[in-house]
Nucleic acid binder design. Structure first.
Lengths: 241, 241
DNA sequence: CTTGCATAGTAAACGGTGTTAACGCACCTA
DNA sequence: TAGGTGCGTTAACACCGTTTACTATGCAAG
């Protein structure tokens, strides 16, 4: 075993395996602290303490606390995107059914992981790194919105739904959607508008529920959520049930 | 001037005047730090330093940093509510015009004060006190939603708009709206639903714009906002313009 | 006028934080 | 077997919130 990689191309050496394991352990500790004590509770010293290490050692793996949080947020976004995609795939062939399932999957994950949701979608804390600063085709938002967009597109090709007049959207919205075209390819503007409208409604409802912004009015936000889902899907041509 | 209050009923004594002035100065300093450096930058020591004081002195005015932030958030909520109310009152008599103006007023304030918006409506930070913990008729959310609700109610009495079937809303939504009835009085359930739906859509759009959650798709969130406002008001029976 | 007390400030200290620097140990490789 | 690199340590700096003990100031009553 002089220098030839024996098994696969990357052939992680022993050191590399240990390293990625430590990276994972650090992020797991960070998440544990995040969940149990909120963002303020995530400290290098506490993570290191839980691992039986000292804080400066973590700098061998992350350049700063901010970078650690950013990496954790990336992982969480992946987890959420996978959950949403799986929910859509488990919902059969009907695109409206898929959309409903993905929306419910998004809400469920967010309700079950409120602190993580806050880290991903909440106040962009300058000290925790301006997430959403990047703006390319690999933006987390784009990665996350793609399954929704694809379902909307399939539905549109199968059976379009009523939208605002095309020329109105072309005039007002079209000129400002270049990033969307760039990351997701060309789309009918009706699909783009309905996606953006629906995504902002979904985000608003879930964020308000997670952030306790509805408690002053509603005891069971899920009821409001289900009514909104139903109304939205009906507007898309689904049969009311 | 032995003990008789000379002027008004409260008759702020000299000490009380100085005290409230200091309280204001502390909150102003906190807001300045918040705006310039984010929530993490708000520290008692920094505030005191800017005032030419030492940190423990602030404990004569606030029991903790958390309480200070909470008081600041209360003030900001008042400022936002006043802005929104003023925008509605400046919009004439048409309730739909008032609703549009209040929605634009909400967005404008939020865009111009993104960090303050994050403090009020963003991630509820356990360390910064669980805002929205309380849940009475004087809840900040209730105080803030009232002008919207009143405009919806006036419009409903003047000319109702199409909604989901009343019995469906009574069955699914009605049982969970007690807090709303308690804080705002009895309302037609159509008004309650439309308010909640519209408020969550408004919140979603504005929060996504403020939190940079739309940049991956849209360069000018205002365009999307205006289209959404127009569509919503048309649904309420307004004339498209 | 003087006594007394509440108020508002101070300095010092405790335990916590992120981060940097200097150092040592262990392993891998040549 | 020698050397370098990766990974961990300790010590230190500069912050932070908070508590304690102490000191002036100014108001009010005797």
């Amino acid at each position: 075993m002089t220098m030839s990689p024996p098994r696969r191309e990357p052939s992680p050496t022993r050191r590399e395996r240990l390293r990625t394991a430590t990276v994972s352990e650090i992020k797991e500790g960070a998440r544990r602290l995040l969940v149990s004590g909120g963002p303020q509770a995530v400290s290098l010293r506490a993570i290191a303490r839980d691992m039986g290490m000292t804080a400066p050692a973590i700098y061998r793996y992350f350049p700063s606390l901010e970078a650690l949080i950013k990496a954790l947020a990336d992982d969480l976004m992946d987890e959420l995107a996978a959950t949403v995609t799986a929910a859509g795939e488990a919902a059969g062939d009907d695109p409206t059914g898929q959309l409903g399932a993905m929306a419910r999957g998004f809400r469920r994950w967010s309700i079950e992981h409120p602190v993580e949701f806050g880290l991903i979608f909440g106040t962009p804390n300058p000290a925790f790194g301006d997430l959403q600063a990047e703006c390319g085709p690999d933006d987390p938002g784009a990665r996350f919105g793609r399954p929704y967009l694809e379902a909307f597109l399939r539905l549109w090709q199968r059976s379009p739904w009523p939208t605002p007049p095309r020329e109105l959207m072309e005039a007002h919205l079209g000129p400002h959607l270049e990033p969307l075209w760039l990351s997701q390819g060309e789309l009918p503007i009706e699909v783009a508008y309905t996606f953006l409208s629906g995504w902002s409604r979904l985000y608003g409802l879930v964020a308000m529920e997670v952030f306790n912004q509805l408690r002053w009015a509603v005891t069971e936000p899920q009821a409001l959520f289900e009514v909104e889902i139903a109304m939205f899907l009906i507007q898309l041509g689904a049969q009311p049930d």
